[in-house]
Design a protein around this nucleic acid. Structure first.
Lengths: 225, 225
DNA sequence: GTCTATAGGGAGATAGAC
DNA sequence: GTCTATCTCCCTATAGAC
């Protein structure tokens, strides 16, 4: 393991990055080895020196996507002090998840576009990695619940599905250069923890909240929608 | 327009349903006219009597998916009394959205899998329909905000993106026969409105909430994740 | 309306030169 | 390691019989 990458490793990385971009744009079946080769400045036949098949390539791309997210969130949680609250952990995990999917956006978008069409055996392996990630979130949530930070009626499994669904979807609309990841993470954590109507602090701030809803009528547009 | 469908209309519907299932499983490029024909009990050439191309077919499938959701939510909102609160509208819209995507699950899943790979012209038209739907949600949220039902710091645009992301993702995990749509809708609405930590009623219930979080330590598993 | 047959093009993968 | 050349297979779409 020297610092200088072997020629083979360089090509391998270039092919992988190219594959992620093409899979992202054309899905699994729509991607051709020719298109990947063009993107990586190679001839189609040359890819097969590094990856033995198209399935081999998509498999590598899928794994990088989910692993980046799992590692990023795991690292962020470990960086927190033991005194961190459940709320702290949830905020940190959301921020880490967003950072990771934006950072390796080509890979996570490729996954979103291609996973559903990939041969069953490959999908099964990747799904197992995703389930592992889901269980990290289950732990975060049940830990916060046990610490008494949630309302007693909270359904943690549905909450996890809600959170991960919304987070996974961000790659579809988040554009670097616009809103910062921190802003998005903060607002998302605020909704998940306090809701749109919710108080900002855990308890005792009822008197600082906006006045109760006046029974105004809905706007004409909403009534007619 | 008689009640009896013409032979042509029957075949057309059978082809459309078959196409939705195949596009759902194999994406746009991965779907072959042969596979659709097999699923619809026809020979490949016969499809072209009803649809002039593969693009024509995917276009029809995509439109049915988004139209079902838009119609379902619009209908649910119109069915509410004028006295309905913003919260009522949000709950109703979530329930209607979920009902629709489960009802025409093959079409919405086909959209999720194929939309990203479809030729640009077709995608553009469908994206316009989706934007229209998004603006209905924007109205629902800004209406509730104007009625004073939200905290003043709420970011409605991000809220809409999170809500629609989480809702769109449900088709990936929701299985008919398990949890009811109503249960999912209720819990999603609770998270969006009150958060996981939140009070159940809009204001003044601080003394009925669970005691403040005790500074317990996080579980070993979460600390080590 | 549905069939059979097929034209014309492009796919994944391999062999062997360099 | 990367190239060229090519094998074999399957795709969309059409033509014309029934």
């Amino acid at each position: 393991m020297t610092k200088k990458l072997a020629k083979s490793a360089i090509s391998q990385k270039r092919i992988l990055d190219a594959a992620a971009r093409i899979f992202r744009d054309y899905g699994y079946a729509g991607t051709t080895m020719r298109a990947i080769a063009d993107e990586a400045d190679l001839k189609p036949g040359s890819i097969y020196y590094h990856y033995k098949s198209k399935d081999d390539l998509i498999s590598a791309v899928l794994d990088i996507g989910i692993r980046a997210v799992t590692d990023s969130v795991g690292k962020a949680l470990r960086a927190l002090p033991d005194t961190a609250t459940g709320r702290d952990r949830i905020e940190a995990a959301i921020r880490a998840h967003l950072s990771a999917i934006i950072e390796v956006g080509d890979y996570t978008l490729a996954t979103r576009r291609a996973l559903g069409q990939v041969p069953e055996a490959i999908r099964a392996r990747n799904t197992r990695m995703r389930d592992t990630y889901g269980s990290i979130w289950q732990e975060i949530l049940s830990d916060a619940h046990q610490r008494g930070e949630f309302r007693t009626t909270a359904n943690l499994k549905l909450a996890r599905l809600f959170i991960l669904g919304a987070l996974n979807w961000t790659v579809e609309w988040f554009k670097p250069g616009g809103r910062s990841i921190d802003d998005v993470a903060r607002e998302f954590a605020a909704i998940v923890l306090d809701g749109l109507s919710g108080r900002v602090e855990p308890v005792g701030l009822a008197e600082e909240l906006p006045p109760p809803a006046k029974p105004k009528r809905a706007s004409a547009r909403v009534r007619a929608a």
